[in-house]
Design a protein around this nucleic acid. Sequence first.
DNA 1: GTCAACAAAATTGTCGACGATTCAGGTGAT
DNA 2: ATCACCTGAATCGTCGACAATTTTGTTGAC
Lengths: 221, 221
Amino acid sequence: MDTKPATRISDSAICDGIKTRIHRGGYAPGQRLIEVDLAEEFSVGRGRVREVFKTLVGEGYLEFVKNRGVYVRRFTRAEILEMGRVREVLEGLAARLASETDLTEEQRALLRSLQDRMDEAEARNDVDRYNNENFQYHAAICAIANNRHVAQSLERVRLPLYRLQLPRSFSSDSMASSNRDHQVITSSILAGKPDAAEAAMRAHVNAGNQHVARLAEEHFR
Amino acid sequence: MDTKPATRISDSAICDGIKTRIHRGGYAPGQRLIEVDLAEEFSVGRGRVREVFKTLVGEGYLEFVKNRGVYVRRFTRAEILEMGRVREVLEGLAARLASETDLTEEQRALLRSLQDRMDEAEARNDVDRYNNENFQYHAAICAIANNRHVAQSLERVRLPLYRLQLPRSFSSDSMASSNRDHQVITSSILAGKPDAAEAAMRAHVNAGNQHVARLAEEHFR
DNA sequence: GTCAACAAAATTGTCGACGATTCAGGTGAT
DNA sequence: ATCACCTGAATCGTCGACAATTTTGTTGAC
């Protein structure tokens, strides 16, 4: 008579639900997640929620403290910078693999389209939109690279960015600089130049890391 | 009156126990793990074993099939090669970070000692020992790199190697070639040359991947 | 007001029970 | 001999109950 799902919700659906909230900021880093709350919300027993929690711990999303439950994982600045180094080489590899690919016309069109949109966002000085497109751009390259393990490793190491994205607030300068990088990367991939694409991507991510290194301490609590 | 542990075993102890067996080959890829068996073995309830399983699924060690339990994760040749590409850049990064480090005398001694032992194993044509030392060598570099996330990402992507290590059976040629790589890497790290160290390490891992690519199909079942 | 000690509530830890699903072995028809 | 079908055993899925632990709230001494 009320919210009774015809088919039982799957574990992976619960998993995705929690992940999404973490990505979108619905759950803040450090926030404690209560088993019963989520159990009620998804209409399942506590046991299943517990198991999902454990999976997410394994994937690096949550942190587990005995007798105190799980918390959305929080990263220190040092840790984020460590992850940044990993991100450099992984994003670089993604760019390399993408440029080694024999691109379909759809893929070329997608890259060009995303680049156009970033150019436009830059021209209009629209930071939010640029951030958004930037995100999709990196996702697209990763998809074109077509290597599940690059994607998976990147997912883990990108985690702190979802949080940092909001206060990142590109200045006009850094947005322009970032987009110059993108243009080099885009053309290198389209031209099928793996070395150039990887090098440009690494430099690009490295620049982002240096930005993070200069961020005020408040962003890391 | 028999094996009754005074203090209750921790989840992480169970976790490590299972991981170790996978590494050592006690559990073969594709092998199904039965909840009750492990529950009895560790003297805990099924629920706890189940939770540990989920964590290991998240970490990439196990595979979960609904209503059929968990299996030791098995990798196809294509997947191993995909992971190999990731390993190239991550081991490369580890080598870079190691050579960016201001090495202590202990660290230098360790590297030299490991290189000596590999040289000796090569001279004696002792494949098993070379394999062993080789493993420790890469672990040492990773430790010196001192970046938890490099280590963690590498752990995931090294997973199929534990299996492949056994049948890998270096020929004299490939062992010699592999050790030549090591010598270059070692001296680059000791000399503090990040670019050289990373490049040499990438080439080294790449050679290993090409070896895997040529392996007979039987090694992947 | 601050703090400690205590009590009550909230939350997690663990287990066992029972139904649901899959697996293994056997039976019979072709 | 092969296959489909059936049946019992093995195993997994889920839940609820209760103990253990932590957290919160209250009281009272100073």
